[in-house]
Nucleic acid binder design. Structure first.
Lengths: 134, 134
DNA sequence: TCATATAACATGTATATACATTTTATATGG
DNA sequence: CCATATAAAATGTATATACATGTTATATGA
């Protein structure tokens, strides 16, 4: 059964477990790592902006960011427009991100070696192209 | 940021939404459709067997199958080894699956056309190769 | 045969995810 | 200026997911 939906979900689960194992020592889930990076890049980042960048529902960002806030990794401040919530990394958030980055590089390298440079690039670009479906 | 983890998770979310929309009229989530198909193919299918086939944790199968059982789409019977639970489709499960199949074909066709035959095949085979990571 | 190991499944707990809807603040038209 | 539309975020609800652990039934070795 060559169902694209199944294939991509399955690959996502397997890959996620791989990254999850890598980040375990810093207590970050892969999604949380991604969110920290995104906040770092867009700082100060509005919820909606993060949702657009990550192709995730706004309500998902609201909930995921709350966990990071509760853990003290992210600070939330109101924007000039007080409907907007702006997220930025706390000092501790920056520290955790810096701890996580080499772990991320490690997995990336391992997975890249597993596939080989060419397949790695092909897979990345095809996955990126999935965005054009939405 | 060319993070493979992010790319595959994002593609998974987008693709899942696409299939989800397709199945909405029969009230199936993509995962549920996949599980119905797997049960149909392996019938009668043990929980652990389904987990292995789908590369999913056993506890996830236990929970997902329970929803299908409650809805009357799947029947669970003990095996000769009474630790084992065997799942099979009910008449209603078969009916729903038959309703869902053309919807599935439809999405498959649309997505395949979007990518083109060649990229579609490449993506499928690269995603399948992700299994070798685990 | 009985104690113990192991296999199959279930439960507790936690995160991720999205749709439908609600709340609150800003924008806009009359 | 006020009524209404719209934008941003939060809440209610439901599924999917996995790890750690518990429960129960079978297998195995002394």
């Amino acid at each position: 059964m060559t169902c694209m939906g199944l294939h991509v979900r399955r690959a996502s689960r397997i890959m996620t477990q791989r990254y999850d194992a890598a980040f375990r020592s810093v207590g970050l889930a892969p999604t949380q790592f991604t969110l920290l990076v995104a906040i770092h890049l867009l700082e100060p980042a509005a919820i909606t902006q993060l949702a657009q960048e990550l192709f995730t529902d706004q309500t998902t960002i609201t909930r995921n960011i709350k966990l990071l806030e509760q853990r003290g990794l992210v600070a939330i401040n109101p924007g000039d427009d007080r409907r907007i919530k702006l997220a930025s990394l706390t000092v501790e958030g920056q520290a955790v991100l810096e701890q996580a980055l080499p772990l991320w590089e490690q997995v990336q390298t391992e997975v890249k070696q597993h596939f080989g440079e060419e397949k790695w690039q092909t897979l990345l670009s095809l996955l990126a192209e999935v965005k054009t479906l939405s």
